[in-house]
Nucleic acid binder design. Structure first.
Length: 494
DNA sequence: GCCGCGTTGAATAA
DNA sequence: TTATTCAACGCGGC
């Protein structure tokens, strides 16, 4: 077999802009492209069926793309360290490459993996930053080791930094893989697994409902389709976007960027080409700015201890949220889309069926769960998002929940997203609700955001009686809102 | 240690 | 449709 190398795919499920893959390809005559399904995350309660299905589809596409280059993908299942340990021994592996990660679990895994491979097996290990525009260690260094906590200071640092490195092209060809690759010790799938292959963990293929089509080719096509819409790209301005749009946002790139089917550096480079020499919006509200927000979230997630919880988290406001058993029934109603507030329920239903929600819809439901209405800890909401979102992203998700719950970054707790008013601005006739909470679809416009205020005969005529066919509001917003405001004030003074 | 700033609501007025 | 005000203040940044 000659010299054997493994490229371990983690995020970065792509051939373009993949430094690790290129390095591995150069240093071997036999290449084993490997993905490990970590049993830690083979759990529909942690990674929902839409996200798992999207991941498996992404692996399928990656396999096909690798085959075009004379290689293919192997998928193993188990504990990453044990799997790698066995494979290195079994196939006498000399080189290991992978993309580094910033999340605590993966960061620790990176370190243990490197140590194991280098010291136990004398393997040459090369790891690279590939999931962010900038090398996070370099940005931290520019800021005296601390992550900036505002966009303004991030932009200052970014302006001092060297430009993000140029994305590399996909390899033209790759070294062959061992055709009869079958490990004696490791659980390697004979072909790319589907959801049915994970039935023992509780995954049911029929439950997959997301309309996102996976893969690097799809990702690049979507990016190109988006970037030719020059006006849309150059005038993009957040938050002036529409959370209640009914058009499935066929240009949404977030799932591809979070899986790494699309390199954020490629998107950045192409975006820069489009906006160059044309009038355009500027960070932080522009499209370019959105990439910087992502970058900021990664930087903070990378360097803040206990960023995924309130306790022991130095940048997180300490607020006496409801949690555990006390919060469970509230979270359940919220997760099921049974709060009795149609706008909130519509968004939560969209989350579950599409695996995606508009940014501002995320804000509405997050505010409702935490400081706005239910007073539940953001950590529980974060978990629900992580489970259902096809574009789930540890850093951005935790960052946003800090923000929305006024736990960090944003402190104007008197500013709230009204559960009956916010969507009304962009969708006065409630089309978004009619789509995602179909039981309410016959309601008159007048009552669509507050169906419990409709007279009984109107409810009956619409075929949906409140309290019977659709729940009463689980809280009285006016009352809890006032109460919660007082609690926030107290927590901030404390 | 203090200064000045803080992407992202809602009601109101024009 | 867009700008103003509300209204107060904690906190990051220098």
């Amino acid at each position: 077999m000659g010299e054997v190398a493994i490229h371990w795919f983690r995020k970065g499920l792509r051939l373009h802009d993949n430094a690790g893959l290129l390095k591995a390809a150069k240093s071997c005559s036999t290449l084993i492209p490997l993905y490990i399904l970590d049993t830690e995350y083979l759990d529909p309660k942690k990674v929902g069926v839409n996200r798992m299905g999207f991941l498996l589809d992404s692996l399928k596409c990656l396999d096909e793309d690798l085959r075009e280059k004379g290689s293919c993908l192997f998928v193993a299942k188990g504990k990453p360290l044990e799997i790698m340990d066995s494979l290195i021994k079994e196939f006498n592996v000399k080189t290991l490459t992978f993309e580094r990660d910033t999340e605590p679990y993966n960061k620790a895994l990176d370190e243990e993996m490197t140590k194991m491979a280098e010291t136990k097996h004398q393997v040459e290990v090369h790891s690279f930053w590939g999931h962010t525009l900038f090398d996070p260690e370099y940005l931290l260094e520019l800021n005296n080791g601390k992550a900036p906590l505002t966009m303004t200071s991030f932009l200052n640092i970014a302006s001092e930094a060297c430009n993000p490195s140029k994305p590399a092209d996909a390899p033209i060809s790759l070294p062959a893989s061992p055709i009869d690759f079958k490990s004696k010790q490791v659980d390697v799938f004979s072909k790319i697994p589907t959801l049915s292959d994970l039935a023992e963990y509780g995954y049911v293929p029929e439950e997959k409902t997301t309309w996102f089509v996976a893969g690097e080719k799809e990702a690049i096509k979507r990016m190109e389709d988006f970037l030719v819409q020059k006006k849309r790209v150059t005038t993009f301005e957040k938050p002036k976007t529409d959370p209640t749009s009914l058009v499935p946002d066929s240009t949404a790139l977030s799932p591809y960027i979070s899986m790494g089917s699309l390199s954020v550096r490629l998107f950045y480079a192409k975006l820069k080409e489009v906006i160059a020499s044309t009038a355009h919006t500027e960070p932080p509200v522009s499209l370019e700015g959105q990439l910087y927000w992502r970058e900021l979230a990664y930087l903070i997630g990378f360097s803040t201890p206990n960023f995924n919880q309130m306790l022991g988290n130095p940048i997180c406001m300490q607020i006496p949220w409801l949690e555990g058993e006390a919060a469970k029934p509230l979270v359940d109603n919220w997760e099921k889309g049974q709060t009795g507030y149609p706008a909130v329920d519509a968004a939560m239903n969209q989350l579950k069926t599409d695996g995606w929600m508009h940014h501002l819809a995320r804000h509405l439901v997050a505010c409702f769960l935490t400081r706005g209405d239910l007073w539940v800890t953001w950590e529980m909401g974060r978990d629900v998002f992580e489970k259902y979102l096809v574009d789930a992203d540890w850093s951005i998700n935790n960052f946003s929940w800090h923000w929305l719950s006024c736990s960090a970054f944003f402190h104007e707790y008197e500013t709230e997203y009204g559960p009956t008013t916010f969507f009304e601005k962009t969708d006065p006739t409630g089309q978004y609700i009619r789509k995602h909470v179909p039981i309410l679809k016959e309601y008159p416009d007048k009552y669509i955001y507050e169906p419990w205020t409709a007279p009984r005969d109107v409810q009956e005529a619409a075929g949906c009686v409140i309290g019977k066919d659709y729940p009463e509001p689980m809280v009285d917003h006016k009352v809890v809102h006032k109460d919660n405001m007082g609690k926030m004030k107290k927590a901030y003074e404390g």
